[in-house]
Design a protein around this nucleic acid. Sequence first.
DNA 1: GCATCGATTCGACAGTTCTCGAAATAACGA
DNA 2: TCGTTATTTCGAGAACTGTCGAATCGATGC
Lengths: 116, 116
Amino acid sequence: MMNDEALMHAFAALAQPTRMKVFRLLVREGPDGLPAGDIARRLNVPQNTLSTHLAVLARGRLVRKRRAGRHVIYAADMEGVRDMIRFLTRDCCHGHPEKCEQLLDALLPECGPAAR
Amino acid sequence: MMNDEALMHAFAALAQPTRMKVFRLLVREGPDGLPAGDIARRLNVPQNTLSTHLAVLARGRLVRKRRAGRHVIYAADMEGVRDMIRFLTRDCCHGHPEKCEQLLDALLPECGPAAR
DNA sequence: GCATCGATTCGACAGTTCTCGAAATAACGA
DNA sequence: TCGTTATTTCGAGAACTGTCGAATCGATGC
């Protein structure tokens, strides 16, 4: 479980337009991820600037990196995401689960109607 | 639906320890909320500093304010939360809903086992 | 070894955020 | 109206963040 500081890093990581775009791109790309250079090219950001942003996302556990030859491949890391959701929704219902409907509705449609 | 800038404000709002504590407190407190001064006292933050933080949370649609006499009462606003969750989970499953299990597990326990 | 390619780190500048004392605003009661 | 209480806004200093050129590191192939 993430502590408060780690959680803060996760929120800070997404509080910046370029990093939001990177995260979105990587979530769509799936577990295979993309090399740093490809991301830089696709988002039109200088490679060194992007590298800094990727480090911030990694610090927030929102991306994971692995090396493949001379490429470093980044992929979305859902562990950080899970802990953010936990924080956002902890104690939200006060014993009235139906109040969480709108929150569940935000999550479930993405997973298809067969999710549950 | 929140645009990217509004969403960014929501993430930025939680990227700061005092504001994280305020949000957590207000979520626990429920829809009735708390007057600004009570929050300041409970978290040991000067009232003017807290006021600034509350404004940032409000900009991110994470709290709502209403006036009651000379008090201004703040309560958690789940609309911003819902849009954050939507952003975090959009396109995460790639046609394999079972991959979202861990994300659902982050949300459902908070709502009690009878939630679905 | 050395040239090359991909990625990161360094260093500096500009811009933004955090904090809090002091001043201003807003609502109430006497 | 005046004094009191609750909250917000203003202003300034310190700290932090985003950006990108230049230098560095790491892996590959010749």
